[in-house]
């Protein structure tokens, strides 16, 4: 075997040019820094902000409990909403006309009425349906649940948020599914997959790339929508505790609003980090760029090829 090892042609010197100047960037930066400095100075020195109260309550036990309750409301209702949203989206796209109509009517009602009204309505469920009975219609009942005797505002709040959100998630998921080229379903079908398997193994994983960014939006939006559960009424979420319970007691609305805002902001930032990693996972195969693993394998192959002639 011969090694083609001719010396590389003399390459031209790298260009050493004066970089283009951007004076307006500097001007804009200076103006903004000055304005921001003035604002921060005002915030720090204005006594109305009551920073001492802010720091006193930032890690208060009741506030932390509120954060935990708000997080639980967000997570449970989002998980329920996504599961229900997938079902509704698949129903909407299925060939079964009954499923299609049911899904359409669901979306019509839950997107067509305000979330605040829906939550109030959920709060009234124990009044409207005081008992849940399981049995033969107009016949004997086997099981009976007294709703009024239960204290279930958290459950009702979660359901209220989830059922409303499911309607929006259904549309996001439907858009994601529709964004996958028809040929993908066709190729899966031609390989003998059933419609359900093709959805699960081929279409939905590809739809995820389109579904995740708006879903991240929805999660963040849900975190803040939980402040409406006071309509149920559920009063142990972050917003209710900070602004109604503590602020009303201490007559300090401004610092406690800031406490609530700081926590919402902190949790949102965490969620954004999670979204980043999810997006990266589901974008695999979307780019022609080689992954680190593939680059390593190629480099290795190159060195073994170069090493061969000496053997």
């Amino acid at each position: 075997m011969t090694v083609v090892d001719s010396p590389p042609p003399a390459s031209p010197a790298a260009i050493d040019a004066v970089p283009l100047r951007h004076p307006w960037r500097w001007v804009a930066a200076v103006v903004i820094i000055v304005l921001l400095g003035l604002f921060l100075y005002g915030v720090a020195t204005n006594p109305s902000y009551r920073w001492s109260v802010f720091f006193e309550y930032l890690f208060n036990d009741r506030i932390l409990m509120g954060v935990s309750n708000t997080l639980q409301l967000t997570v449970y209702s989002m998980v329920l909403a996504i599961v229900l949203g997938v079902i509704l989206a698949v129903m909407r796209l299925s060939a079964n006309p009954v499923f299609r109509s049911v899904s359409w009517v669901y979306l019509w009602i839950f997107r067509g009425t305000p979330i605040y009204v829906q939550l109030t309505f959920w709060g009234l469920i124990p009044t409207i349906y005081s008992k849940i009975q399981l049995g033969v219609p107009f016949g004997p009942s086997f099981f009976q649940l007294d709703l009024q005797a239960l204290s279930i505002p958290f459950l009702l709040a979660t359901l209220g948020l989830a059922l409303n959100e499911a309607a929006y998630m259904a549309e996001i998921i439907r858009a994601g599914i529709s964004s996958v080229p028809e040929g993908q379903l066709e190729a899966s079908t031609a390989l003998g997959m059933s419609w359900g398997m093709a959805m699960r193994r081929t279409v939905l994983p590809q739809a995820m790339r389109v579904i995740i960014p708006p879903t991240g939006n929805e999660v963040i939006s849900m975190l803040k929508t939980t402040s409406l559960v006071t309509a149920v009424p559920y009063t142990l979420d972050l917003y209710s505790i900070a602004t109604r319970e503590i602020a009303a007691r201490e007559f300090e609305p401004v610092p406690l609003l800031l406490v609530a805002a700081a926590w919402y902001l902190a949790v949102t930032s965490l969620l954004m980090v999670g979204q980043f990693y999810l997006e990266r996972y589901y974008s695999r195969g979307a780019s022609r760029k080689l992954t680190t693993k593939q680059l390593e394998a190629l480099a290795k192959a190159q060195t073994t090829q170069l090493g061969e002639p000496h053997v």
Binding site: P181, G183, Q184, E186, A187, T189, A190, L191, G192, T202, P205, Q206, Y282, R284, G285, A286
Partner: peptide, 17 residues
């Protein structure tokens, strides 16, 4: 269909695999 293979004009490979 399991016993009938099909090749498409636009390949239709699964891009995520």
């Amino acid at each position: 269909r399991r016993d009938i293979g099909m090749v498409f004009q636009h390949f239709n490979l699964f891009p995520h695999r």
